[in-house]
Design a binder for these strands. Structure first.
Length: 375
DNA sequence: CTGGGGAAGGGGCCC
DNA sequence: CGGGCCCCTTCCCCA
């Protein structure tokens, strides 16, 4: 993603999604589990396997779920939105509140068998060794051959791969937790040039954005190209739930998933548009946290959350106010800072550190390995 | 009020 | 073309 102008991007996104009722928070769908959970929890391996695979990607059912923009906190109230809460939702079913204690008890029993001791919480293995290997255990000793240090890694590039889904091979260099970015995302996202073999680029005739693959360009034109949106001749498939129009049926199908939410969690009934979103959600049930911080051993279920956490270990935060120079670990914190007024005139933009980068843009991203001393 | 964590969303890219 | 994964971002909640 291009980040040289995130404020503009945010504004664009706000505009882009303003018309669309989809915004965060999945909704509850029909609960298909028996009302009474088994008296004895299944083996964690069976549970995890079922948790991951036991969902529908119901392409047959295009009926949308609740599409309200800001549903209440479902986890607290258990009062999941009914179809009445959305003008287009037709299939959302409210779970009977009396089922929740049973669900929670059932989950607690399963979780007790899944969760490691607190001291071991940050380690994904071997407690999760029996999980269905979607997140296969990976030895932290290989990931972090040296003791924790606040010094920048000597060879940051060595640490490109950091994914429990793809553990490093024995002959590969150890991945660096500090650089959690995948290799393929470095150049285009950060604007930092990296030495990579020249490959043919596929350029969008409407907005001049280029992509390394034709499929990338194709998807861009199908879904994202704002410049092409004015060309109605290109659009022939319209979404029946919102005003979106697409140039191909495949693009429309992909979009409709965000309305129909075909991937359903059979433990709590929440529905998601993509399987991997459900996958992440299921971790909230199992307590699986495959991403751990090497500084404090705190573990996270989401890689991005670990990345944000790493900023808290950094002396110099990633986002800085151009007015007062104060740094923040998250852009949202900086935004709050700016919204509240930092007291310095003209402090309306922020910049990424470090200073070595050109500062012609008001919003720049820190290169993955610079100035961050965490890990 | 601020900072941080949890959860979830969409876009980009590779296979 | 579609699935899967990664990334960044956002929203909400809490200490």
């Amino acid at each position: 993603m291009l980040v040289e102008d995130s404020q503009a991007t945010r504004a664009l996104m706000t505009k882009k999604y303003a018309h669309c009722p989809l915004k965060k928070r999945p909704v509850l769908v029909r609960e298909e589990r028996p009302a009474t959970p088994p008296t004895t929890p299944p083996h964690p391996a069976h549970l995890a396997t079922r948790l991951y695979y036991d969902y529908h990607c119901d392409t047959e059912n295009d009926e949308p779920q609740n599409l309200s923009t800001k549903p209440e906190d479902l986890s607290k109230t258990g009062n999941y939105p009914s179809k009445a809460s959305s003008p287009v939702a037709t299939a959302a079913v409210k779970m009977e509140p009396r089922e929740w204690p049973q669900q929670l008890e059932y989950l607690a029993a399963c979780r007790a068998r899944l969760e490691p001791a607190p001291a071991e919480l940050a380690r994904p293995s071997p407690q999760y060794a029996y999980l269905p290997t979607l997140y296969a255990p990976y030895p932290l000793e290989e990931l972090y051959p040296a003791a924790p240090s606040l010094s920048p890694p000597a060879h940051p590039q060595m640490y490109a791969h950091y994914s429990p889904a793809s553990p490093p091979s024995s002959c590969s260099p150890p991945p660096c937790p500090e650089d959690l970015r995948s290799p393929g995302s470095v150049s285009s996202d950060s604007g930092i040039s990296v030495s990579a073999p020249r490959r043919p680029r596929y350029q969008c005739p409407d907005c001049a954005k280029s992509y390394s693959t034709y499929s990338g360009l194709s998807k861009h034109q199908q879904y994202h190209c704002a410049a092409a949106e004015g060309s109605l001749a290109r659009k022939s498939f319209s979404c029946k739930y919102c005003a979106k129009v697409y140039t191909s049926l495949g693009a429309l199908k992909m979009h409709i998933r965000t309305h129909t939410l075909p991937c359903k969690c059979h433990l709590c009934g929440k529905a998601f548009s993509r399987p991997w979103l459900l996958q992440g959600h299921i971790r909230t049930h199992t307590g699986e946290k495959p991403f751990s911080c090497h500084h404090c051993r705190r573990a996270f279920a989401d890689r991005s959350n670990l990345r944000a956490h790493l900023q808290t270990h950094s002396d110099v935060k990633k986002y800085s106010c151009s007015g007062c120079g104060k740094t923040f670990s998250r852009m949202s914190l900086l935004s709050k800072h700016l919204e509240g007024g930092c007291g310095v005139p003209g402090a309306s933009a922020y910049e990424y550190r470090p200073e070595a980068l050109p500062t012609t843009h008001t919003h720049q991203q820190l290169p993955p390995t610079a100035t961050v001393h965490a890990y």
